[in-house]
């Protein structure tokens, strides 16, 4: 996983509420056996609408997405995070996220930033451009801040472990496997306390 420390650049001023992962990536894109190339299918339905932000050349390749409340609800498909990553998005800012989506994003090196609605509204203005052309947004994970050239400064909370993994680009599976003996210990206790946990063998 790539390290994520600071992200600078334009932001898609999206802002839509309750965006489910079927909207982020429709089911027919789920037939792949690869994690790559899903950006083509990202927001497919919305991209059929003329003037949508995802096909606006001003925002092509923007590393930040500003979304609305409850972003990523619905299906657990990690393809939604892969699709955003494939578009080049490294940070999603919204008033709230679904639990499953924010976990999936994090596992793919995408930072989800929760900010109050009024902060998100202000960042949407900046992303659209105060003087007509889109203005950049700066996200700093170490200091947990989102700033703009207009002196806006918003701080956000993040789970310390997630922060540690994102900053270091760490492989969570490798970290857990290093604790194999702790897991062995749990399994030994469970075999004593709940021996029936192993499913009955089926012929």
């Amino acid at each position: 996983m790539d390290k994520l420390t600071t992200v600078d650049g334009r932001a898609y001023p999206f802002g839509m509420k309750n965006v489910d992962t079927d909207i982020v990536i429709p089911a027919h894109w789920l037939k792949t056996i690869s994690r790559n190339g899903l950006g083509k299918g990202a927001f497919e339905v919305l991209r059929k609408e003329p003037g949508n932000v995802f096909d606006d050349p001003d925002y092509a390749g923007s590393p930040i997405l500003i979304a609305g409340d409850n972003f990523g609800c619905g299906s657990s498909r990690e393809h939604a995070a892969w699709a955003l990553g494939d578009l080049g998005i490294k940070v999603v800012i919204a008033p709230s996220f679904s639990d499953i989506f924010s976990g999936n994003a994090f596992k793919n090196g995408i930072l989800t930033v929760v900010l109050p609605q009024d902060a998100v509204d202000r960042l949407l203005e900046v992303a659209q451009g105060i003087n007509g052309t889109p203005d950049p947004i700066h996200v700093d994970l170490e200091s947990q801040t989102v700033t703009t050239q207009f002196q806006d400064r918003f701080t956000f909370e993040i789970d310390p472990f997630r922060k540690h993994c994102l900053l270091g680009g760490l492989d969570e599976i490798g970290l857990t496997l290093d604790q194999g003996d702790v897991i062995d210990g749990y399994e030994a206790r469970q075999a004593q306390d709940r021996p029936w946990i192993v499913p009955a063998a089926v012929a």
């Binding site: 994690r35 657990s76 498909r77 990690e78 995070a81 499953i100 976990g103 999936n104 596992k107 793919n108 789970d159 472990f161 969570e172 599976i173 857990t176 496997l177 897991i183 399994e187």
Partner: peptide, 20 residues
């Protein structure tokens, strides 16, 4: 509960998940 594919891989490899 439902999990994403990275967590599927984590469970396959370790039989655990890191959760709050």
């Amino acid at each position: 509960f439902g999990i994403g594919t990275s967590e599927v891989e984590h469970v396959l490899a370790t039989q655990t998940l890191l959760l709050k």
